[in-house]
């Protein structure tokens, strides 16, 4: 059978899992929680939830030398923390980033080069969030 549908970038949600034992929210989802609970084996299922929305900028960089597959001249990347403690890295859409600034994380598809296909966060200044 020939698979003719490329579904790599159609799911644009980013999901975390909640450990049913310790309650920690895990992203990316591991096979084993730091409390020792094994994912979906011999125990209650791990609840999954989408992670997006308000977050705080922990650090950032303006990258001038982009890897293969990206055509932009530069890209600003930021590391953020959501209020539930989950941390993530995303594309930062801000002209004057400052450590500790409040941002809104949206999920958008990325299709760059041969292997970068999937959802990624785009981190916007709160006043610039699309409606």
């Amino acid at each position: 059978m020939i698979d003719t549908v490329d579904e790599r970038a159609t799911d644009i949600s980013i999901r975390a899992a909640v450990c049913p034992v310790c309650g920690r929210i895990l992203y990316p989802i591991p096979l084993v929680c730091s409390c020792g609970q094994v994912h979906d084996l011999d125990g209650p299922p791990w609840e999954e939830r989408e992670i997006a929305g308000p977050c705080t900028l922990l650090t950032w960089t303006r990258l001038k030398a982009l890897p293969d597959g990206f055509t932009e001249n530069e890209m600003i990347l930021g590391m953020v923390e959501f209020s539930n403690g989950v941390r993530a890295i995303g594309l930062l859409d801000s002209e004057s980033p400052k450590l500790g600034m409040e941002l809104e994380a949206e999920v958008q598809p990325c299709n760059a080069g041969e292997y970068r296909h999937g959802p990624r966060y785009v981190l916007k200044e709160t006043s610039c969030v699309s409606s």
């Binding site: 982009l66 990347l77 999937g118």
Partner: peptide, 14 residues
């Protein structure tokens, strides 16, 4: 990390 466009220099910058 990889899909986002993160590289080792990006981590070093952050």
């Amino acid at each position: 990390e990889y899909t986002v466009g993160v590289t080792l220099p990006a981590f070093a910058g952050m």
